[in-house]
Design a protein around this nucleic acid. Structure first.
Lengths: 346, 346
DNA sequence: CTGAAAGCGCTTACAG
DNA sequence: CTGAAAGCGCTTACAG
């Protein structure tokens, strides 16, 4: 298409100057006489000419385009990360394209062909929900990729990945969540959702266990349920937990992997006539836009996703080889309350 | 970067053939002798060589990259559209970049410079929430843009925009929503949210009025509130409506612009002790992932956003100059119920 | 089956 | 201040 495919040659010949001169005007260089500049600019405006960045890239060896690999945009958590990254990229004059996980092609013959061919100026990869056995494959794919473009990691980045990163410290976060609940008198605290992670010392399970230890509470296997991070999974997981325990042992507080899982838990509690937070507190994570509008409004943890995305772009462009941690902030709403032994047992 | 910036020349000289031959192997052409192909392929693998698509684009005059302009990704409604478009683009071998509305630069001297310079193969523009006075500016900007690349419109596309489009027919949708509520005996039906649209004959207001006429109900100005499409706006709008009306005139059913607004309405109803759907039915639009998990679960309208995005990509690539309508589907949940005059007056 | 050469639309030294 | 020329890394006729 581009019916107007005017080139720098058209402008040059129209004005009667060389393409070098047009190029100078285009890039706002100062060493052009006012008269010439004026004539060239007029021709440019008249033809509505815009130089092809493709040709420019070929010379400059830079495309000013970045990529980001995210598990899925339908979870607003990732949409926030993407938005933060996208806006920062644009602010710095870069374009941002989304690539699915499949782009890494960790099991294909040639990893990340499309990414490399596009000559991106950098790539952000959100490392999350990795099947445990994929860990090394992914690490290897990332190492290969790095030979072609700068890579910055975000998410639950294993500490032995030697990449610049803006990483969650899930363990510390979980520990503070547990502390928040134990301070309110809760002792039967369940943790629902998330894949089984064996290697990452920052993993949530560790933080969960540490938090219990801090409060001198025992770790109870029945209170730890694994599963996917969806509302349906949360619903089913709590359902199953309640079904498998005598009422006396029902947890009085639920820590959900994320707000989606928490939504499912609220639903199950409602179905069983368990009042939240009267009989059971629920806390989520990610602080999605809908958290304040759930019933009861959901206490959650704001993980500053947009800032994470923006920061990753900054690291990518500056080339700093730092590993940073994501800040978090517990947002108190109505779904958590002090444990009330009378109501709790009612 | 790209420390491995091997070029086609490196491979050619390494193997001792011409770059034309390497190019043939690269593109899988058949007119290469097996022996040569083998040697070339080995060199490619050895050096981990990937041809630069930038150089390829310069020749082929096509970039296989598309753009999409969306109001904001943080509303899952748009994230769904983006996901649908992105996945379809990828399936067809294209890349998809998100551009903010500002890219159109409707009020700047040079419209859409960045978009044009990137030589996109096509652009999807979601036309929504246009300030009424911007209508002509946007139309003009789009016309200019079209001289440079194919453009497909989605969203609330005014019918006098002569562009290929996958457009909502909001009027018809609203009319059927009103019919759904009147069939349940509702007579005091409010419509909350949305900007004041004066020109578009497909606008929701018209559908709302037509729906009332269908049921021989009067149009009551107090039941129509304008505002932004956010939860906060929905909350405030219903708040104001209830405050300005005597209890007897409170609406028994609320049609919200979208699920976000509906979330706000549920909140206000809860605050006023109005039971939903006992005393007031609420229906949203967009069927966001959280709709089933609100309390009560929200009846909404599924507008097949992913399909919309995918379809727009297809039109863009095929070049068909069609204008299609988006299908919709009312999803019944718990927030709407037949009007019960006894409870309603209680 | 293979190669030399022109061309894609720019930028960048280098002369003048 | 301006231009001729080389170069960016490919593809594409055109010869052979």
């Amino acid at each position: 298409m581009n019916s107007e495919n005017t080139t720098i040659y058209d402008i040059a010949s129209e004005v009667g100057v060389s393409i070098a001169t047009v190029s100078r005007v285009l890039r706002g260089e100062t060493n052009v006489s006012p008269a010439t500049r004026e004539k060239v600019q007029q021709a440019i405006d008249r033809r509505n000419y815009r130089p092809s960045s493709i040709a420019r890239w070929l010379t400059s060896k830079t495309t000013h385009s970045l990529g980001i690999i995210l598990p899925k945009l339908l979870n607003p958590h990732y949409a926030m990360i993407f938005t933060g990254a996208q806006e920062e990229a644009r602010r710095l004059g870069y374009t941002m394209s989304l690539f699915p996980w499949a782009s890494l092609d960790t099991d294909a013959y040639n990893p990340a062909t499309m990414l490399i061919e596009r000559r991106l100026d950098g790539l952000i990869v959100c490392v999350e929900y990795l099947p445990p056995d994929h860990d090394e494959l992914v690490h290897e794919a990332l190492r290969t990729l790095r030979r072609f473009m700068p890579v910055v990691l975000i998410g639950c980045v294993p500490p032995w990945y030697d990449f610049p990163a803006v990483a969650n410290n899930n363990a510390a976060m979980m520990r503070s969540i547990v502390a928040y609940l134990t301070a309110m008198g809760h002792e039967k605290i369940a943790f629902i959702g998330g894949v089984q992670e064996d290697k990452d010392p920052h993993r949530r399970d560790i933080g969960y266990e540490e938090g219990l230890q801090d409060a001198r509470l025992p770790y109870t296997a029945s209170y730890r349920v694994y599963g996917k991070g969806t509302p349906e999974a949360g619903k089913a997981a709590l359902e199953e937990m309640l079904g498998s325990l005598k009422r006396d042992y029902w947890p009085t507080a639920i820590i959900a992997l994320n707000d989606l899982v928490a939504m499912g838990c609220l639903e199950t509690a409602r179905k069983h006539g368990i009042s939240v937070p009267g009989q059971m507190s629920v806390i989520g994570c990610d602080d999605l836009f809908c958290a304040p509008y759930l019933f009861p409004s959901l206490t959650s943890v704001n993980t500053h996703q947009q800032q994470t995305g923006a920061r990753a772009v900054q690291l990518l462009i500056s080339g700093e080889q730092r590993r940073e941690s994501v800040e978090w902030e517990l947002v108190e709403r109505a779904s958590c309350a002090p444990f009330n032994s009378e109501k709790g047992e009612s």
